[in-house]
């Protein structure tokens, strides 16, 4: 047994390193900012150009979903603006082919929880409270845990309903 002790130890540590690599891989697949079909830049649109969130996410205050803008809205400006940029040319390609852009979803609640953007906007919750400072995110990434504890803490602090039924229909 004594002879094999160093080998057992080495196997244990190699196992731990492999587990770290597995966790890292899992995080890269699910937790990081996913690559989008077009490298849309919030820092340029919301930061440099100063567009308000609702300029593109027009339904955020009137429906449960914030909704991603249709290509036609992008084309209102990009028919003429920045048409020499490769990413805008990609956009143009979608428009010419009349094809929707399959954006990768970043903020996804589990199936058993519902969330309504309209109610939260009406209650005066700023977009950045959940989505962070998008003007500084070159690629949109998850910046909150979206855990139940976090939601409930906020509901309590704002005297919003905390019955299970509020979020779990």
């Amino acid at each position: 047994m004594k002879r094999y002790l160093p080998l057992i130890l080495v196997a244990y540590f190699i196992g731990c390193v492999l587990l770290i690599l597995v966790l890292a891989r899992q995080w890269q697949d699910t937790g990081q900012a996913p690559e989008q079909p077009i490298a849309f830049s919030h820092p340029i649109h919301a930061g440099n150009l100063g567009l308000e969130c609702t300029y593109c996410h027009q339904n955020v205050a009137r429906s449960a979903q914030a909704t991603v803008p249709p290509v036609s809205l992008c084309m209102e400006c990009h028919k003429n603006a920045a048409i020499d940029r490769p990413e805008v040319q990609k956009l143009r390609g979608y428009w010419d082919r009349q094809e929707p852009i399959h954006w990768q979803r970043v903020y996804q609640l589990p199936w058993h929880a519902v969330f309504n953007h309209k109610r939260h906007i009406k209650a005066g919750v700023d977009c950045s409270f959940c989505h962070g400072e998008l003007k500084a995110q070159a690629r949109v990434r998850l910046v909150r845990s979206l855990s139940m504890g976090w939601c409930v803490s906020c509901h309590r602090s704002r005297n919003a309903p905390t019955d299970c039924w509020t979020c779990h229909k």
Binding site: F13, C16, L19, L23, T30, G31, L142, R144, S145
Partner: peptide
């Protein structure tokens, strides 16, 4: 230590 470090990585939020 490795067990606790792994546990830490497992429970930390992705962000």
């Amino acid at each position: 230590l490795p067990v606790f470090v792994l546990w830490d990585f497992y429970t930390l939020p992705a962000y």
